[in-house]
Structures are given as C-alpha cells and as structure tokens.
Amino acid sequence: MDALLSVRDLAVHYRTAAGPVRAVDGASFDVPARSIVGLVGESGCGKSTLGRALMGVMPRSASIAAGSAVFEGRDLVTLSAAERRKLLWRRMAFVPQTAMNALDPVQRLGAQMMEVLVERGGLSRPEAGTRAAELFALVGLDSGRLRDWPHQFSGGMRQRASIALALALNPALLIADEPVTALDVIVQRQILDVMRELQARLGLAMILVTHDVAVVAYACDRVVVMYAGRVVESGPVRAVLEAPLHPYTMGLMNAFPDLERAGGELVPIEGAPPSLLNPPSGCRFAARCPFAVARCAEDPALVEQAPDHHVACWRAAEAPALRPLASEAATWAS
C-alpha cells in the first residue's frame, strides 16, 4: 500500500516537574493516500499529543523523543523548523480540538481566510476573495457569511469554518482533533458528511481523532486504536470493528449504547487509563482487562495478526472465543 504518512515507534514526551510524561510511547501506523483514518481511544491516551506532534504544533514542554514520521517521503522528525513551517497549511493542516481555537474571535471570518490565502498562500487579494467564497461553499456555508464574526456562528457552522480555513491551501493531509465531540447528533452527522464528501472530492487524506467508535464506523476507512500512549490495534474499519482482536477495542464497542439493541445493562469499561508519568510495565491495559493472564506482565508487541490487521495482545489468537465473553457486563465487573 502507498502510504502518505508512515509513523514508526514515535514517542512524544512532556517535561514536567515530576518527570517526563510519556504521552505517546512508541506509536506505529500508516495513513494511506486518500483515506480517512480514525485515531480512537479514551481521554488521556495521547491522541491530541500525537496529532499535534505530527503537525509540528506542540507546546514548548513537549518533544519528540524517538521514532520517525515519514510524510511524502520526508521524515518530519528530522526536518528543520523552517522546512516544517513550509509544510504547514500547504501540505498538512490541522483542525484543533475546539473549533473556537482555530478561529480568531476578534477578526471577521473572511479576514482570517484572506490572511492565510494572501500571506501564506501568496494569492492576490481578488484571487483570495474568490477562493474564500469557494472554500465556504465547499463546506456548505453561504459565502455572504464571510463578513460574520465567529460568535455569530453556531457550533456546527464554526466547525465548518475551521475546516474551510484548514483547507485553504489545498493540503494533502488534514488532521482533525475531535471535530464533532461537542456537537449534537444532527450537526455531528452533517459535519461528518462534509468531511467524507471533501475526502472524496479533493482526494484528501485525513486523520480523525475521536473517543467515539460510532464516528469511526460512520466516517473512516481505517482505524488506529490507542491506549495509554500506545497503538494497541489497527487495520481496516470493517476488520477492526466487526472482529476486534484487542480486549480494549471489544470494550469500546460494547460500551456503546445501541438504539437497536434491546434494553438491559450497558457494559462499561471500569476504571480509567493509567497516568503516563509512570506508565505500568507489561501490557498497559492489564489493570482493566478481564482476560489478563500471568504473561500480560510482559509487554505485548504490535504484530500483524491477520493481513493488514495489527494488534498488541498476548491473547489475540483467542479473540473469537473472547468476544462473546466481552459482550457480557459480568465479565467486566471489577
């Protein structure tokens, strides 16, 4: 497969007074050209850190400690800051976790768009005006609203505007961090439809960061499941969601309230991800895993268990037998 982005053993640490926080601790996955990859996991698993590290927009306390991220043939980790900046907007663009963060509250939307198009893209003002209207139309916004201020927009419209802004200079890769998390179900669906349509029309690749497996099922071609700074499972959406190999992925699927599944108790994953200041040794999911055995005290490597389907679990070969157990609440009760 022709990967647009190839991440290998990437580690990103935050310096803190208490020591390094290993927010991403050896992540490996591919983003094929023209595909939407869902990066899924609970809060605190390192998804935003990973997205920001790939984008090169990290806080000062963060640094890439190891690994590589080859994008269009060049390793982002070893590029100079200046070369990095050249890629930003033009080849890869970012929609941050809250749409409001992407937009400047004291500037009209049109002016923000013009700034990117003229100053970064080198377009003339008339060209930029036409392009701004085009971009708004692309995400389903009326170009008349380029004169509006961000606060005049609803949550869904703001998210559309920040996607339009990210697309201004035709990037090949868009990283969107929780683009629908704070939105209600109708707006969620409309935004995901916009993203799918953009991907199809413009041939973009996207990384869609989310804690919601339904978002992955609806919008993504591939999925990367993260737990405690590591990739624990990855592959095509159908393979991973329909026949998960990792107990964490099984848990994420079973915790989902399903409109069609009859009443009964929901199946939560008890507990929470560990602190990444001193991550536990061995399998990081062991403390919450109902299937943990003695061997799980050692670290399972991410292996290709089936063609194009990777997993890091000692009991992956037993997954077909574990899946029915994982769908019962009693299995997870601590």
Partner: peptide, 15 residues
C-alpha cells in the same frame, strides 16, 4: 430526523 442521526458503531449503516 433525531432517530436517523443517532450514532451507531456499525460499519454497514445507512449513510
């Protein structure tokens, strides 16, 4: 419309 918009974690769904 609210029913149709409910997110479901299934790969095959009405889009």
């Amino acid at each position: 419309a609210l029913v149709a918009a409910v997110p479901v974690p299934r790969v095959d769904q009405d889009r």
